[in-house]
Simulated assay, not measured.
Amino acid sequence: MRLVPNSLHDEVAAKLRDRIFAGALVPGSFIDESALCAELSISRTPLREALKVLTAEGLLRHEPRRGCFVSQITEQDLDEIFPVIALLEGRCAFEAARNATDADLAALEQLHDRLQRNAKGKRITEYYETNFAIHEAIILLANNRWLAQVIGDLRKIVKLARLQQLHAPGRLEQSLSEHMAVYAALKAHDAEGAEAAMRTHLTRQRVALRELARNQKSRITA
């Protein structure tokens, strides 16, 4: 597989980012630079530039004289990040409720219909993809590039763990209910209601992840 030289390090970063999110590069795993250079037919320079990008995003950590490793997100990381994301995405929902046109709401309705179908079919991966698209649509409707930039950076980190929470018992149905509450507030142009519903949605995601981690720990120690 040979990559074109245009923005080469950005392309390499995108490929590695996709592998991290797909679980092909698991948390804590070592980034083998020699193997990647051979696989992608590139030199060390664009690869190292790509590794710098992913390190700055928090997806990799660099250890002097050892190299780069895929980041391992901790419970403390999640406890610190989720309240910030809830605050920021809540503000996006507030602005989106004020800005949304009939056409915007019709597009959101289609996404929520798809979300319901995926929930009914227990298709967690597809549900997550639709869920992500809804969050992106709401962020776009907020029309605040500073909010979008900060949320985007934080979501890259949280994406390492967020999909797991949908495997918690009852979480899929709960998540759907929360999303429908956000949509109802957006449709009513209820800015404060949309903000509160979004913050509740994200706060409960953290609770679900915490319960899942506790259950996994209990099974290991049992």
Rank of each mutant, 00 (worst) to 15 (best):
V70S: 03
D190C: 02
R204C: 05
R48Q: 12
R48Y: 09
A181Q: 14
D18F: 07
F21L: 15
K217V: 08
L3K: 00
N215H: 10
Q165G: 07
A148N: 04
T130D: 12
R117I: 03
S7T: 06
A191V: 06
Q110E: 11
V207P: 01
P83M: 09
R19G: 05
K120W: 04
I139V: 15
R65N: 09
D190K: 08
V70P: 02
P27Q: 06
R66K: 15
Q76G: 05
I124D: 06
N143M: 04
R17N: 01
S34A: 14
S71D: 09
A35N: 12
A213M: 09
R162V: 10
E136D: 13
S177P: 01
R123P: 01
H9K: 12
A22R: 13
R48P: 00
F69A: 05
Q174M: 13
V12K: 01
A22G: 03
Q72V: 14
I85L: 15
L108Q: 07
A196D: 08
R114N: 11
I151C: 01
A188W: 09
L78R: 14
R171L: 04
K156T: 01
E49I: 03
L51P: 00
S175W: 01
H9F: 14
E39M: 06
C37T: 06
G90F: 05
Q149C: 03
N143K: 14
N131Q: 03
I220S: 13
L147Y: 11
A208E: 03
A107G: 07
V84Q: 11
I73Y: 12
A137S: 14
A96W: 08
G121T: 06
A222M: 12
G28P: 00
I138R: 12
E75H: 10
R17G: 00
E11N: 13
E63K: 07
E109H: 12
D32I: 02
N215S: 14
T74W: 10
L60V: 02
L105K: 12
H135G: 15
R145K: 12
A196F: 08
S43H: 06
R17T: 00
D18I: 04
N144C: 04
A35G: 09
